[in-house]
Structure formats: structure tokens, C-alpha cells
Amino acid sequence: MGAVAAARPGDEPSPGRPSAPRPLQSGAGALDNAIRVEGVSKRYRAIDGRTVLALRDVDLEIRPNEFVCLLGRSGCGKTTLLNMIAGFVIPSEGTIRVGSEKVTAPGKGKGVVFQQFGLFPWLTAQRNIEFACQQKGMDPATRRRVAGELIDLVHLRGFEEKYPYELSGGMQQRVAIARTLAIDPKVLLMDEPFGALDEMTRAGMQDELLQIWSNRRKTVVFVTHSVSEAVVLADRIVVLGPNPGHVKTQFTVDLPRPRDRLDPAFLALEQEVQGALN
């Protein structure tokens, strides 16, 4: 499983089988999309001038193509941790590596999906995705084709010429996910991506994300405060505790996919994780 490389949108067209295995990139190797968090702490200065410790001494190893959920209440530093992996925030102590590269800045294959979507309001759905393609240096024809494939992948055919304000929250987040996939990221970092959506849309989006993930294997770090969301999605759940933020405990979820949210084993695990959270 771990050796299956992600389909690269920039490559030759592979209509009908976007998930076809590809030869590994030279020198990169499957380990290129592992994430290593070593002894990371984050301090920041509060408004009143006091120094606040947001995260203390976090060690975390995420395997290539693993789907990890960071679970915790607000204020336990899960978004801070994600922002440090993304390169938006620099750790006060310790190092973070994505593949062999130490994280010092955003970009370089670290795809991020935000709770508030972050679509460019002046670009249509198609153009939002093409914007990302352009930064990968694709020529206009390739951009159009790749964006079109991604529109299909996130089931937005027919909405590609719509502006963000014309789309529902769920559709906007699907555009944002497609845009992130357009750069063929090594890792997919998602900060409560479905937090702004209603319950029904949310469940649908979880299923859709898993489908996308099974098509285009990526290492995923997914921040959430919903226990059931974590149990539906994750290979592994990392529970963070507060004051200061630290890794409290971890759960490996080996329930087969697709997971039945009403299955007794599912509910039992949900209870157990909930217990660890309290």
C-alpha cells in the first residue's frame, strides 16, 4: 500500500484510471511524504506581554500515506501544530520534517485546506483550480485539462464557471480541496475543513474525502474536534491535551473501510476515544 505513488496530475493523461500506480520519482521515494515532528514546542507572546506555552515537547511520526486525525478541544494546540507542519508558524524548539526536508516556510508540496475555504472570490471554480496548476508551471492546455479532471473528481461538473459566492459551503470546500490536489502535494494538511458545514453536508464530505484519498493516496493530517469524524476518517487518532498542548494518547483505528457509523465496534471505539478526551 505504502509504495503506491500518488497519480501526478501533470503527467500524461490517464482518463478512466486516475489512480493508476506510477513509478516512483527518482531519489524521492515513498518516504518523501512522511512527516516527522521531533521535540517541538511553541511559545508565543500574549497581548498582555506574558509568554504562553501553546505546545510542549511534541513527538509525532506520520507514515507515508497515513491518514492521521489530530483530535482535541479548542486551545490544546492542534491548529498550531498543523500550522507548524504547513510552515506558517515556526516552532520555538524542535524540528519538523516533511520527507527529508526541514520545514521552514509554506509551500513545497505541503497542501493546506482551511476551514474557511479561502477561495479567491474573483475567480470561478475552474479558475481557482487553474491558479494552483499555474504555480506548478503547467501550460494553459494542461491547466485546463488537469482542472477539468479535478472538477470531475470532486463532482462539480456543471459548476466550473460559477463564482464562489454562487456555490454552497460544501461545494466551495470541494473546490478548495481540488485546488490543493492540483499541486499534487506530498502531504494534505486539513484544518477543521468541514467545521463550517452543516451536519448532513459534513457526513457526505467525509465519505467523499475518503474516496478521493483512496484514489490519490496522500499523507493526510486532519484537525478536528469531532470524535466521530476522527473515527470515520483516521488510520490513527492522536489525542491532544491542553495546558500546555501535548500528545495525550493515540488510537489506531483498524476498522475496515467504508466504516459503518452505527456498527457496534465503531460505537465502542467512539466511546473509548471520547473517554480519553475527557
Binding site: G87, F88, P106, V112, F114, F120, Q135, R179, T180
Partner: peptide, 12 residues
């Protein structure tokens, strides 16, 4: 947020 998005997409 839009600036973060652009930076995460390696936009010069």
C-alpha cells in the same frame, strides 16, 4: 487567509 493560500501553493 488568501495570502496563506497563495503561499501554500508556492505562488511567487
Amino acid at each position: 487567509l488568501l495570502l496563506r493560500v497563495a503561499r501554500s501553493l508556492d505562488t511567487p
